[in-house]
Design a protein around this nucleic acid. Sequence first.
DNA 1: CCTGATCTGAAATTGATTTTCAATCATAGC
DNA 2: GCTATGATTGAAAATCAATTTCAGATCAGG
Lengths: 143, 143
Amino acid sequence: MKKAKKKLFREFIAEKGLKSTRQRDIILDAFLSSDRHLSIEELYLKLRSKHPSIGYATVYRTLKLFAESGIAREIHFGDGQTRYEHTGEGEHHDHLVCKRCGSIIEFENEAIEKIQDEIASSYGFLIQHHKLELYGLCAKCRA
Amino acid sequence: MKKAKKKLFREFIAEKGLKSTRQRDIILDAFLSSDRHLSIEELYLKLRSKHPSIGYATVYRTLKLFAESGIAREIHFGDGQTRYEHTGEGEHHDHLVCKRCGSIIEFENEAIEKIQDEIASSYGFLIQHHKLELYGLCAKCRA
DNA sequence: CCTGATCTGAAATTGATTTTCAATCATAGC
DNA sequence: GCTATGATTGAAAATCAATTTCAGATCAGG
């Protein structure tokens, strides 16, 4: 899984005439070996301990590259921070976001996707992607 | 419709011990007589022509009050701008957002809401609100 | 109309993100 | 390997939306 992502990113880099650098490798490793839904801040702090010389700007730039290359995807939960999640595996998943503890549950639902397509086509609209988030309290927090 | 909103806001103001001011009235009128999904920038510019003395900060503050009072709701479409939409009428609506021309179509769908509830309860999750946005190309733009 | 609390506009501030720039580094060709 | 060229980097400055500050203006009740 991680190997496939690394390969994909290497290919993307090559294709675009970009360079493979130490920092990109480090950030990629850190990203791949971490939780889904990582904020830039979190990833930066995680890196900081082992690699204090890597700058904030580089983390931002590199995560944008990950998104462009297709191995990551930007997500916004309305808290003013950009997060990145891994792509692949369970595609098209949506989120349950707990407003109290911040935990995030992913889910997929075929039926909803299907209805979305129907709605879109009834408006002549072409869906490129979508975002579905359910906000509230998770089982722990509502107890 | 507009009368009911105005009344609601007046009540909110009174209840909170806030004051009714010329600026708040002006901004409320402008908000109520405008498109749904207005960005703060847009509303500010709209006001600017008739009331050049109203400041940016006041528009921000007043829109936040509208949201608190329940006559408006914040929305984020991931373009880094906060928009406000009117509440009431067709509640629970979701959005189709055209990535090319920026137009926004609203829709409601019972079936999706129902499935959402089922998903949430299968995780023991309590939904407070949700966000569903379909991004792509509207009928005009895909032609 | 006075008084005290709230409001306002302008400017400063914040927080997230992006850009700039000089120095460094990777890679392809020799 | 060594060099030239162009991409990359870190730090600091800049940007952008949004918020806060503050001194002066304005409201509501007495």
